[in-house]
């Protein structure tokens, strides 16, 4: 058995750990304009990133967008997941495929769709001006709202399908029992469905939060040039600035913040579901 597992384990190590180790090593190097990179073992890239108010702001924006997108995805996703999970089996597979539909187009293509919708001459403004509701186009593209809407469209399917799998496992009769004992729909949701779905809520939020923290195409295309999240900032350092050590340090900081918050969040949720 161990002999069989070994190649697979090595492959996983090779695929997952090696690039990370490389990246970490690079983050300890020193940038050099002529040579690009000097071998070194220095924490200066990390210190510089942490000390720079600009990157603190970028990180704050990233966290803000990721947290609000995750929360909104949960708020939108829960009813949808519930509806999907409780659907007659005949339609369920069709609805599941429809849920996955948005993922069939790439992020860039989808963002283009949003741009056509939200732009100054986009469909929404055209409709609003056409009906005489507004005279001047509303600025919608290149706003934080546009980024969150764009990200939501990407992550909502993940949230919905994760939640639906867990809700499906909650027997309908348990909800009926709550109703039978006098619980209205809201109470039944709060006291029975939500606590039982908590593992799914935790899993969905972690998955979506990680996706949001690492969003690239959507913030670049819908947030506009002034809007910065961490993933585009990392890209800027690697590709436009050719400062690999600093880019690697930023990438690691993003990874650490994501990891810490993910562990923290799921520990709290897990604790809640146990104590309840």
């Amino acid at each position: 058995m161990a002999a069989l597992l070994l190649p697979a384990t090595l492959l996983v190590l090779g695929l997952l750990v090696a690039p990370m180790a490389m990246l970490f090593r690079i983050s300890l190097n020193r940038y050099d304009a002529a040579q690009m990179m000097q071998e070194a073992l220095t924490a200066e890239n990390y210190l510089r990133a942490l000390a720079d108010p600009y990157y603190r702001e970028v990180m704050a924006t990233t966290l803000g967008v990721a947290l609000s997108s995750t929360l909104l995805a949960l708020l939108i996703g829960f009813p949808a997941a519930y509806w999907l999970a409780r659907m007659e089996s005949r339609w369920k597979s069709l609805a599941t495929i429809l849920t996955l539909f948005p993922l069939l187009v790439g992020n860039v293509v989808r963002a283009a769709g949003w741009m056509a919708l939200l732009g100054r001459d986009g469909a929404i403004n055209a409709a609003l001006i056409g009906t005489g509701l507004i005279a001047e186009p509303l600025p919608m593209l290149y706003t934080t709202g546009a980024v969150i809407a764009g990200i939501l469209a990407v992550v909502a399917p993940y949230m919905i399908l994760t939640l639906a799998a867990v809700i499906e496992a909650i027997p309908r009769s348990v909800e009926e029992a709550a109703a039978n004992l006098g619980a209205g729909p809201l109470t039944s949701f709060r006291r029975v469905v939500l606590p039982l779905a908590l593992p799914g809520v935790a899993a969905g939020c972690v998955l979506v939060f990680i996706l949001c923290m690492n969003a690239y195409a959507t913030p670049v295309l819908l947030g506009g040039p002034q809007f910065k999240m961490m993933a585009p900032a990392v890209y800027d350092q690697f590709v436009r600035g050719t400062n690999w050590p600093f880019g690697a340090a930023l990438a690691f900081l993003l990874l650490i913040v994501t990891l810490v918050l993910t562990i923290l969040g799921s520990t709290i949720l897990a604790g809640r579901s146990r104590s309840r």
């Binding site: 029992a177 006098g182 029975v192 039982l196 579901s273």
Partner: peptide, 14 residues
């Protein structure tokens, strides 16, 4: 105001 006993019992597992 009915009290029902389900075939599967439907106890609240949590």
């Amino acid at each position: 105001d009915t009290g029902m006993v389900f075939q599967s019992y439907a106890l609240f597992p949590h």
